[in-house]
């Protein structure tokens, strides 16, 4: 059975792009070096992560485009790469949304010191006779 109505009747391109592979390989090595350099240069906080992720995405894209031949394929195949990036962005984006909004809403800025401050206030009120001992709170754990 050979007759088909499928969409992928495009012949595979010949694998004779030695120069191209070499250039991509060198680019990947340079980008790996850049990531290593970045880890040594102490770029502050989120910027360092963002740059490292950007480099990783460029490297992955180079591999998919040239080593996996997406560069020579028609549009729909490249759409697969694009949609994969969308889902990676989704995973990282909604997770970061959690991390970046977690502290201000879930824990107030003085959360670490609040129990101790409250304990002191209660002790002071007890000493002044304004509060009875059974209401005393346990000591805050460090």
């Amino acid at each position: 059975m050979t007759a088909h109505a499928g969409d992928a009747a495009v012949p595979a391109p010949p694998h004779s792009h030695r120069g191209r592979y070499l250039a991509v390989w060198i680019a990947l090595l340079l980008l790996t070096g850049l990531t290593w350099g970045l880890s040594r240069s102490h770029v502050p906080g989120f910027a360092g992560v963002a740059i490292a992720l950007g480099i990783a995405i460029v490297k992955g894209t180079l591999v998919a485009l040239f080593f996996m031949h997406l560069w020579d394929r028609p549009g729909p195949s490249r759409l697969v790469l694009l949609s994969s990036l969308v889902f990676v962005a989704l995973l990282i984006g909604l997770t970061l949304l959690d991390v970046s909004t977690r502290s201000p809403l879930a824990l107030p800025p003085d959360a670490d010191t609040a129990p101790e401050a409250l304990r002191r206030t209660i002790l002071e009120e007890e000493a002044a006779g304004r509060r009875s001992p059974p209401e005393r709170l346990p000591r805050a754990t460090p």
Partner: peptide, 22 residues
């Protein structure tokens, strides 16, 4: 289906803002 996973984390320490979105 890919946009909904956070509803498993409502009581796990996920931020209330993210929980509302999910």
């Amino acid at each position: 289906g890919f946009f909904t996973w956070g509803h498993h984390l409502f009581t796990s320490g996920q931020s209330p803002y993210d929980a509302g979105v999910f």
